[in-house]
Structures are given as C-alpha cells and as structure tokens.
C-alpha cells in the first residue's frame, strides 16, 4: 500500500517540475519520469501488459518530444499569461478538484473492485444473465476467457478475441494519426518562414 503513495508522490513531483520549469528539454525529461513511474505503478497494480506497453510507448513518445524540442533556439519560455486569467483558471480548477473529491466518496474503496464475487461452488459453465450478476462483463471474461479462446492471459483474450473489433478500430486510429503526421511533416511544404508570403 505504501508503495502506491510513494510512486504517486514521485509522479506528482515530476508533474509539478514538468509544468513549472522554464527549460523545455528538462520538462520533456520530467514527462518521461512520470511515464516510467506510471509504468512501475501499473506493475504493482498487477497489470503487466499495461506496464510493458507503457514502457514502449514512453520511449517512443520521448523520442518524438525530444525531436520537437532539441535544436530549437527558442526553447526558453519568456512570460506568463495575464495575471487575472491565471487566477480565475486556478480558482475554477480548485473548484473542480473539490467537487471531484466528493465524487470519489461514491466510488467503491480502493482495493475492493466494483465487480461482484464469483458465485460459490463449481466454476461457471454458461453465460450469466443480468439478474444473476449485474457486473457480468468482467466475471464472464474472467471465467470463460480460457475456455472460449484458449488464451491463458485474460487481457489478451479480451483485446484479441472478445473485443477484436475494438482493437481493429484502434489500429485504424493509430494509422490515421501517423498518416496525418506524415502529411503535415512532408518535406515539400509550401511556405515556410524563409519565404514569407507578401
């Protein structure tokens, strides 16, 4: 339990440094610290698939971000926004935070998940109806995952079999965004700073 608080505090401190530092490169490196702290946190939360994916995505994201910030001469931030706007936005965010804290009271406590316990006795043979178990999605995946798909890893059986169309849509979104980035960054762009359009 204490390890969660330590990692969360580490991530919070890294986030504050990343937000408040003046140098963009150190800010990017602090984002990397948040990501790897989150990856460790996923590992302690018993989500090894997420931890592996987070590390890979983190390394790629750091490369992309450093590509944007390095070799730019104007990476230092000069001024802040207007004082009044900052105060108003901080007040609104404080209000959001307080309301959010009161919403968390209605959630189940940390460590006691929302889905119900499995019915005692023999393992499930058939799919449950909604009357038998209101949270039947999770218990169905957990109980039937091995038998229906043959995958020992329940997460893999969910993303690749039960919700395979979801993963297909994810791949579509990923390729579309990479296509957009390629189109934006193509070398034969029309007007850059060197040739102003007057």
């Amino acid at each position: 339990m204490a390890i969660f608080y330590i990692l969360l505090l580490f991530m919070l401190i890294a986030a504050i440094i990343a937000v408040e530092t003046k140098d963009l490169l150190s800010s990017v490196i602090c984002v990397g610290a948040i990501g790897f702290g989150g990856s460790l946190m996923f590992l302690f939360l018993r989500a090894p698939d997420i931890a592996i994916t987070q590390i890979v995505v983190e390394v790629l994201g750091l490369i992309i971000l450093i590509r944007a910030t390095i070799s730019r001469d104007l990476t230092f931030i000069t001024g802040e926004r207007e004082f009044f706007g900052t105060v108003v936005s901080v007040a609104i965010m404080l209000a959001i935070f307080l309301f959010g804290i009161s919403v968390f009271e209605t959630l189940p406590r940390f460590g006691t998940p929302a889905f119900a316990k499995a019915p005692a006795g023999s393992p499930m043979k058939t799919y449950l109806t909604e009357e038998q178990d209101p949270n039947r999605v999770t218990s169905t995946y957990t109980a039937m995952g091995l038998r229906e798909t043959g995958a020992a890893n329940i997460v893999a059986s969910v993303i690749l079999d039960f919700r395979a169309y979801d993963t297909l849509g994810e791949a579509t979104v990923l390729f579309t965004s990479i296509l957009g980035a390629t189109v934006i960054l193509r070398r034969k762009s029309r007007k850059l700073l060197e040739e102003p359009d007057e």
Binding site: L45, R46, A47, D49, I50, T53, Q54, V57, L60, G61, P113, A114, F115, K117, A118, P119, A120, G121, S122, P123, M124, V137, T138, S139, Y141, T142, A143, G145, L146, R147, I154, V155, V158, I159, R163, D166, T167, E170, V173, L174, T176, S177, I178
Partner: peptide, 28 residues
C-alpha cells in the same frame, strides 16, 4: 477450467484491456 478461486482473486481484466487501447492511441 479456471477455478472459483481465480475469479475471487484476479484483478479486473476489462479496464486493463481498454487502457491498453487508450495508451497506444495516445501515442498516435
């Protein structure tokens, strides 16, 4: 088959599967 003990001790796999999708999309 998986035993009932697995159902009562495993963490929730559904958020993990959905977050796996969200992480990859955040990279894009």
């Amino acid at each position: 088959q998986v035993t009932a003990g697995f159902l009562n001790s495993a963490v929730d796999p559904l958020p993990q599967a959905l977050v796996l999708t969200a992480i990859v999309i955040s990279l894009g």
